[in-house]
Design a protein around this nucleic acid. Sequence first.
DNA 1: TATAATT
Length: 378
Amino acid sequence: SFQIHFRILNAFQQVIAAMETQLSNGPTCNNTSNGPSTISNNCSSPVESGSMEDSKTNLIVNYLPQNMTQEELKSLFGSIGEIESCKLVRDKITGQSLGYGFVNYVDPKDAEKAINTLNGLRLQTKTIKVSYARPSSASIRDANLYVSGLPKTMTQKELEQLFSQYGRIITSRILVDQVTGVSRGVGFIRFDRRIEAEEAIKGLNGQKPPGATEPITVKFANNPSQKTSQALLSQLYQSPNRRYPGPLAQQAQRFRLDNLLNMAYGVKSRFSPMAIDGVTSLAGINIPGHAGTGWCIFVYNLAPDADESILWQMFGPFGAVTNVKVIRDFNTNKCKGFGFVTMTNYDEAAMAIASLNGYRLGDRVLQVSFKTNKTHKA
DNA sequence: TATAATT
């Protein structure tokens, strides 16, 4: 296990080295790659205008993939240098990642190296942004504005020009139709400080931008983590338990980081569908009928008292789990010995199967496989 | 007319 870990780390170091070479001409930045429905400037020059009092070791990392864990964040940034502390910011109630975190290095040079190396790194559908964190203070919080009623022709640059008279803009974004790419007339402006945002509301709310026929609405943006109680309950029920202890979770974590890096650099995954022995033909495998269905996994030899939580705990560490079900006897309500788990991503499902098939749960040895269409095999 | 940016 140590050898496997070392091999992955070693591979990662090589990838980082290759990436540094690649980035020596300046990091590439795809402004639309942080989600198909937005235009954003989220990777604009992170190294800028730091005052002498600002920390040179503490970084804020934005636009992290939703399913990235704190441990993966630490693994990724720990490859640059020694980390003093690392924190993934989570919703206080649901524990869900809020998509950003902090990494504090011991050595300022490592922090700088992390910015140069990892800013703009693509992980899954996200392009992460790595920049110096400013000292936390009330004056920089709640500085995000929601703007609606924008002319459909207004560009992100024009939006920034309109708002820049009120202060330093950290990010701007115009939401666009996913299919046509046409502006939906709404967007966000994040200022450096709250007072700048307040002044922009006073100056621009209800005003017509140059050349526009309709006035725009400018107000403070809702906090995305503040959802309805129903949404929170739903998330609580849906969220897999990430604290399943033991070697399985560690194996899952190594795989997940490996997988993130494979996706980031376009490296062909060792776990890609074509590489899975025995199921290459896909014969007998339940192929998702439509997008979003995911991969259905059959779990056999569960104990009579097994419940859904054990499936969340076992499969959650391997990646995105969308559904679990324990099959019960109608009369006794006891588990009939099997259940199903649906996972979004093939690679994560394949790794979960490879790791959990033959796993001893209590006094039972589990059989875990992709769900087949056959009734049963002897 | 709603994105996961200050622990």
